[in-house]
Design a protein around this nucleic acid. Structure first.
Length: 424
RNA sequence: GGAGAGGUGGCAGAGCGGUCGAAUGCGGCGGUCUUGAAAACCGCUUUACCCGCAAGGGUAACGGGGGUUCGAAUCCCUCCCUCUCCGCCA
């Protein structure tokens, strides 16, 4: 949620930035301004009324004590009207606050000045590309065929046990999965991230604070009996560890990492382009999360990208870095880089990481502030990124590394898998 | 799931209808003292919002929500959470 003070004091900037999302920025901001004015005026009135009431109450107390019963009664009679009017104003204030809040919830984050405008994924900017595209030859198979052939990935068993999009890994496939998770976690630890194992379900407050609610309600699995949501990413529980908190400036930066399975309904996406592991309802992901001072956050975003590049280099996968255009960015993000790996058999780029700076969009909902040396509180910047998302990494590894002898495991991963080759 | 106890400031812990945003202790910050440090002493030490250029003023918050009352941290209802005992259980 964008900050009201920002919208009021930097209206022009907000409008320009929001315009990159191809929305009616001016209209949204005008409405916000009007609703906020109403809220302020109502609160001013209400506060004045309550101040009067408080004064009267105190006077009544004093009169009672000094035994002036009649005067106390007279004063008491005067409160009725004030109370009614205050109650009325309170109702109006609540309504105004709700209207303002609901409206602010509909406004996406304002893209950073560095974000290119554009409507579609085609307008994303390729920042860099690295690694040779493998030449596989005509016998190359897509990962879902490889998985079946080697007996390590079973989409059909997932269908039986749960439903489409819930993969089952077995044997060396399962071990590869576990190796990747351990590898990613170790790399994050080396880079100074504190490891967390968070809950895999969250309450509505948490889902709201990181921006999944109300915007992406239908994307999450919802356990209605308990009002809980299966997490679509570890970002949600991990970032929410710092909900409603004020951190001392010298505690920063806060660097957290966590592995969790991720659950996404992906309603409405079916077809050939989502075959195999390309898009699934449950996948594993190691996520890095940062809480930072505003002046550092963009440097940190680049640092996080470098971390992810290091992982991809270690995995020997060809990859590219995209800077998302305004139209393709997530609702909560101010700037997002996507990292994609090339899956050579499919001949497609697969997104394996999304690294975003949310500026104060999340912290405003989280009520996550930094107490500075001047004792003033200000909202922190939050960032997160996949480091990395497993299913698609596995897809690319299987496809790119297929040989006559088996599936080659990258050197860096071998200490974790305990084998150098996946064989039949 | 059943029974009981309880949820107060960074922590501990008073308050149980009025001037209580809240005693006291600890912690933290500043000062006096000291060659320096400690101790001692003094002062300060929550958050959000509203009005105001500012100085300053106002409102709200004692788990959440609602109620009683001129007035609630204090009384009532309700929800949530924690603890103890019982049950169940990886």
């Amino acid at each position: 949620m964008l900050e009201l003070t920002y919208l009021r004091e930097h209206r022009e900037d907000a409008e320009q930035r929001l315009a990159k999302r191809n929305i009616d920025a001016a209209g949204l901001l005008d409405t916000a301004r009007q609703l906020d004015d109403l809220r302020r005026n109502t609160q001013t009135d209400l506060d004045a009324r309550l101040a009067e009431l408080n004064l009267l109450s105190r006077a009544i107390g004093d009169l009672m004590k000094s035994g002036k019963k009649d005067e106390a009664e007279a004063a008491r009679a005067k409160t009725a009207e004030l109370k009614a009017s205050a109650a009325n104003l309170k109702e109006q204030l609540d309504a105004a606050e709700k209207a303002l809040h609901d409206h602010l919830c509909t406004i996406p984050n304002a893209p950073s000045s560095k974000v290119p405008s554009g409507r579609t994924p085609e307008e994303n900017v390729t920042v860099m590309q690295h690694g040779a595209i493998p030449e596989l030859g005509p016998s190359a198979k897509p990962h879902w065929e490889i998985g079946e052939e080697y007996g390590i990935l079973h989409m059909d068993l997932g269908v039986k046990v749960t439903g489409a999009g819930f993969p089952v890994y077995s044997g060396q496939g399962a071990k590869l999965q576990r190796a990747l998770i351990a590898f990613f976690l170790d790399k994050a630890s080396e880079a100074g991230y504190r490891e967390f194992i968070p809950p895999h379900m969250v309450n509505a407050e948490s889902a709201f604070a990181t921006g999944q609610l109300p915007d992406k309600e239908g994307q999450m699995y919802h356990a209605t009996a308990d009002g809980l949501y299966l997490i679509p990413t570890a970002e949600v529980p991990i970032t929410n560890l710092y909900r409603d908190s004020i951190v001392e400036a010298d505690q920063l930066p806060i660097k957290m990492v966590g592995y969790t399975p991720c659950f996404r309904r992906e309603a409405g996406s079916y077809g050939a382009h989502v075959r195999g592991l390309n898009r699934v309802h449950q996948f594993d992901k190691v996520e890095i999360v940062r809480i930072e001072k505003p002046e550092n956050s963009y440097a940190v975003l680049e640092e996080m990208v470098e971390h992810v590049k290091g992982l991809l280099n270690d995995l020997e996968l060809p990859y590219r870095q995209l800077l998302l255009c305004g139209g393709d960015m997530g609702f909560s993000s101010a700037m997002t880089y996507d990292m994609e790996v090339y899956a050579a058999a499919q001949g497609r780029w697969l997104e394996v990481s999304s690294i975003s700076n949310f500026e104060t969009f999340q912290s405003n909902r989280l009520k996550l502030r930094i107490k500075g040396d001047d004792k003033k509180n200000r909202l922190a910047h939050t960032l997160n990124g996949s480091a990395l998302a497993l299913a698609r990494i596995v897809a690319a590894l299987l496809e790119n590394n297929q040989t006559q002898e088996g599936i080659r495991i990258p050197k860096a991963l071998q200490p974790y898998t305990g084998f150098t080759m996946i064989v039949k």
